[in-house]
Nucleic acid binder design. Structure first.
Length: 420
DNA sequence: TCTGGGGTCCTAGGACCC
DNA sequence: TCTGGGGTCCTAGGACCC
């Protein structure tokens, strides 16, 4: 039976979030920048029309920004995450089982919910209501597999006649559209694979769909083989509405300005560890493996050691245990005279806190109540209200974020004000 | 001068064991 | 001294996504 797999995707998500609270920016060019205001990570349609590419560095587009009076925002993830939850909750009113694929996309399956001929109308209803309730414009793609639904979604945005909903369930319609769909735009085909395929004369989704499975596997392993099947309407990538817990947690940042001292490096790592531990506790997980790393400025090759690994004898979620290792790591890694550009922490070997095996012979040093109190206070009064006394007081490594909008929906002192 | 951050999955290759 | 192969587990790195 042909399934009605749907993907809903917020249009220019970060830009649209900013516009919800600045309605005067509708139809005006808007850009949202990456951390440190380094490059463009979201562009409104007006900006795309100016030819500014995804990831374009600020210093290269400064002139265009001025000339066209583009509104630039630093990224405001507290706001985006909250709007994302609102969109998801609105969507659940229409279909309870959704797969949250990213901050601005969800998959869902309408097969057992509606007859195929009713699906397109329902998608329009969902779309209209999310726009009314949350203020977020969206696009919806519908097809028998996730890969084809992503293609439909792409077409829904590009071709105005679809009004942001494209249904490729019908094989003839589908054939007509994938004939002209470039492989670069297929979900799962990156630059490398696209180049490889083009060299072999394959340039469109339809051409890739024709590839024999054996050949696909040989060329791009099981990943490409699956993709070819998906293009032919055979579902290989299943919907996952009950995801497992995370496999890894990362906190890393490029510095707002170059860092040369051990203290600054240590301060940044401690900060990242505290954030990572917070995330860990929030997801009710504990970690076995800790990785701390530093990066020097590009082309700086005299840096010998970048990584510090540690395996906890008993999985933990205790911020204070991490900090001990930061001291050790900085001692190991720091080299004077290096211009450091970035640091980070990666937690892997994650398991549910309730499944942690204690070791009889190791004293359990985790201070649950302390950590609980820490999280509650910081949640209520703002990040880093309470932190460890060993966190050095200095901000040299922090991000540049000059154009950040208020966190309208998550911080009481940043609420929007209505004018009478 | 200035180019993000947080994820997932897959493969190859090394270490080790029998 | 030289001689095998199969299995597992782990890690680093690649490719990709948003």
């Amino acid at each position: 039976m042909t399934r009605s797999i749907c993907i809903i995707d917020c249009n220019n998500f970060f830009c649209s979030c900013e516009r919800i609270f600045r309605p005067e920016l509708k139809n005006k060019p808007v850009i949202v920048m990456s951390n440190n205001d380094g490059c463009a990570v979201a562009r409104s349609n007006e900006v795309k029309d100016l030819g500014i590419k995804m990831g374009a560095p600020m210093f290269k587009i400064k002139d265009l920004v001025q000339r066209h009076n583009i509104h630039v925002f630093s990224s405001n993830f507290a706001l985006y995450q909250d709007i994302s939850c609102r969109v998801q909750n609105a969507l659940r009113d229409f279909i309870p089982n959704i797969e949250i694929y990213s901050i601005d996309e969800c998959f869902f399956d309408l097969t057992d919910f509606l007859p195929p001929e009713a699906v397109t109308d329902y998608a329009h209803t969902i779309q209209k209501n999310i726009l009314n309730w949350v203020g977020m414009p969206t696009s919806i793609g519908i097809a028998p597999t996730k890969t084809l639904a992503k293609i439909a979604n792409h077409i829904a945005k590009e071709q105005p006649s679809f009004k942001y909903v494209c249904n490729l369930s019908d094989p003839q319609t589908r054939q007509r559209y994938i004939k002209h769909f470039p492989i670069e735009n297929i979900w799962g085909i990156g630059q490398r694979s696209a180049h490889k395929l083009r060299l072999r004369g394959i340039g469109t989704a339809a051409e890739l769909a024709q590839m024999p499975l054996k050949r696909a596997r040989q060329l791009g392993s099981v990943v490409l083989e699956r993709l070819v099947m998906e293009l032919n309407g055979i579902a290989c990538i299943t919907l996952n509405t009950q995801p497992d817990h995370k496999q890894s947690i990362t906190v890393s940042r490029s510095f707002g300005q170059p860092v040369y001292t051990k203290n600054d490096l240590e301060a940044s790592l401690i900060h990242h560890c505290l954030r990572a531990a917070e995330k860990l506790r929030h997801q009710k997980l504990a970690v076995k493996h800790l990785l701390l790393y530093v990066r020097s400025h590009k082309h700086h090759t005299t840096l010998k050691k970048h990584h510090y690994h540690y395996e906890f004898p008993v999985a933990t979620d205790d911020s204070l245990q991490f900090i001990t290792h930061v001291k050790q790591a900085t001692k190991n890694l720091f080299q004077p005279g290096i211009r450091y550009a970035k640091s980070g922490v990666v937690l892997t070997g994650l398991l549910l806190k309730k499944d942690v095996m204690n070791d009889l012979f190791i004293e359990n040093k985790t201070s649950h109540h302390l950590m609980q109190a820490l999280d509650q206070i910081n949640k209520k009064f703002g990040a880093e209200t309470i932190t460890s006394a060993s966190v050095p007081h200095n901000n040299r490594w922090r991000m540049r974020q000059d154009k950040k909008s208020p966190r309208y929906t998550t911080h009481l002192d940043e609420l929007p004000t209505a004018q009478a």
